[in-house]
Amino acid sequence: MSSGKPAGPLRHGWTTGACAAAAAKAAYAALLTGDFPDPVAITLPKGQTPAFALAVHERSADEAMAGIVKDAGDDPDVTHGALVRASVRHGPPGSGVAFVAGEGVGTVTRPGLPLPVGEPAINPAPRAMIRQAVAESAAAHGGSGDVVVTISVPGGEALARKTLNPRLGVVGGLSILGTSGIVVPFSCSAWIHSIHRGIDVARAAGLAHVAGATGAVSEEAVARLHGLPEIALIDMGDFVGGMLKYIRKHPIGRVTVAGGFAKMTKLAQGFLDLHSRSGAVDFRWLAERVEALGGEAETVAAVAQANTAVDALEIAARAGLALAPAVAAEGWTTAARVLAGTGIGLDIAVFDREGGLLARTAERTAA
């Protein structure tokens, strides 16, 4: 199955934070001089100096606005092609840079994120980039650097519904993200970021139990199984290791890892990244489990030649062999290695394609 990754070398792109910083620099330069630099160059945290073409710009007596279309390169980023705008006006003397959420940029409503409740969802690293960009314009054109910067992304509220922002308590639009300013294609950094923030929000809410699920069906099923609220559900996708490693550093009382039989088989095999790029279901491995369960030679051979993990499961079931519990138990062993010595409770839940429970382990801590 294709991963959707283009063939050949992949283009890097730019984060919404980098686009916002460049737009703010151009807008502040125009506010001070009347002219918009186009293209406008900024300095990224690691010293790169990319230049951005302006898509829109306008200026009045007391405010200037510039906008840049985000190019995420070859990464399948939900904000690729979005217009990121910065409007800049003078602020009170000595005020520095103040941030406002414009159209399509969210506001933080839950504790646990790296910004206080009530703040625009412009993350700390993009704020630092915007401050740097404003300082560069101030130094070049004799400005004070005391400004109010409004960041907006037209259509951002609709785009945000495709992200985890609503679950994280960011309402009204997108978060302005990025630490390096650069989007690395297929790095899935935004997904990992969302996993981390989901855990932070759950911890800040005082929850003692979270569940990471590989997909929507297993997420709904594990929520029913344990009676968990939405805020306790972590959309980990394939990144079991990314979730567990963050929980190890930021402990929570109990974590459930939930998924379909195929994904949980890969966890049982020892994978912490469950994507197809990391490895496939090993049918010989499954056949060995069937043999250990007492399967006859014919059944073992059939499992070894199965077309899919579900096919292997059905072959075992027809022989009266409980393959799913064996997979759940070994999946627990893989996940427990990450949490060893933390005292964090761990259990595994395996579901079918309709959300039916195939197997679960008891909650216990890893030695």
Score class of each variant (00 low, 15 high):
residue 130 I to Q: 06
residue 130 I to M: 08
residue 130 I to P: 06
residue 133 A to F: 05
residue 133 A to C: 06
residue 134 V to P: 07
residue 135 A to L: 08
residue 135 A to C: 05
residue 135 A to G: 13
residue 136 E to F: 04
residue 137 S to R: 07
residue 137 S to Y: 02
residue 138 A to P: 10
residue 139 A to M: 09
residue 140 A to M: 05
residue 141 H to V: 01
residue 141 H to N: 08
residue 141 H to F: 14
residue 142 G to Y: 09
residue 142 G to C: 11
residue 143 G to Y: 02
residue 143 G to F: 02
residue 143 G to H: 03
residue 143 G to S: 07
residue 143 G to K: 08
residue 144 S to D: 13
residue 146 D to Q: 10
residue 146 D to I: 01
residue 147 V to Q: 08
residue 147 V to I: 05
residue 147 V to C: 04
residue 147 V to S: 08
residue 147 V to E: 07
residue 147 V to G: 05
residue 147 V to A: 06
residue 148 V to D: 13
residue 149 V to S: 02
residue 150 T to Y: 00
residue 151 I to P: 01
residue 151 I to W: 00
residue 152 S to M: 14
residue 152 S to R: 11
residue 152 S to W: 05
residue 152 S to V: 10
residue 153 V to L: 04
residue 153 V to F: 03
residue 153 V to M: 12
residue 154 P to H: 14
residue 155 G to M: 11
residue 155 G to L: 05
residue 157 E to L: 01
residue 157 E to S: 00
residue 158 A to S: 06
residue 159 L to E: 09
residue 159 L to Q: 09
residue 161 R to Q: 05
residue 162 K to L: 09
residue 162 K to R: 15
residue 163 T to F: 00
residue 163 T to A: 00
residue 164 L to P: 01
residue 165 N to F: 01
residue 166 P to G: 02
residue 166 P to N: 06
residue 167 R to P: 10
residue 168 L to R: 14
residue 168 L to V: 07
residue 169 G to D: 10
residue 169 G to R: 11
residue 169 G to Q: 14
residue 170 V to I: 15
residue 170 V to S: 01
residue 170 V to T: 06
residue 171 V to P: 03
residue 171 V to C: 10
residue 172 G to L: 03
residue 172 G to A: 02
residue 173 G to N: 05
residue 173 G to E: 13
residue 173 G to M: 11
residue 173 G to T: 12
residue 173 G to P: 09
residue 174 L to N: 01
residue 174 L to E: 03
residue 174 L to C: 01
residue 175 S to F: 01
residue 175 S to Q: 13
residue 176 I to W: 11
residue 176 I to F: 11
residue 177 L to D: 09
residue 177 L to P: 07
residue 177 L to G: 11
residue 178 G to Y: 10
residue 179 T to W: 11
residue 179 T to E: 14
residue 179 T to I: 13
residue 179 T to K: 11
residue 180 S to I: 12
residue 181 G to Q: 04
residue 182 I to L: 09
residue 182 I to E: 09
residue 183 V to M: 11
residue 183 V to K: 12
residue 184 V to E: 15
residue 185 P to M: 11
residue 185 P to D: 15
residue 187 S to A: 15
residue 187 S to C: 07
residue 187 S to P: 07
residue 189 S to L: 02
residue 189 S to P: 00
residue 189 S to Y: 04
residue 190 A to C: 13
residue 190 A to T: 11
residue 190 A to D: 15
residue 190 A to V: 12
residue 191 W to T: 15
residue 193 H to S: 15
residue 193 H to V: 14
residue 194 S to H: 10
residue 194 S to R: 05
residue 195 I to K: 06
residue 195 I to Q: 10
residue 196 H to C: 00
residue 196 H to G: 01
residue 196 H to P: 00
residue 196 H to L: 01
residue 196 H to V: 02
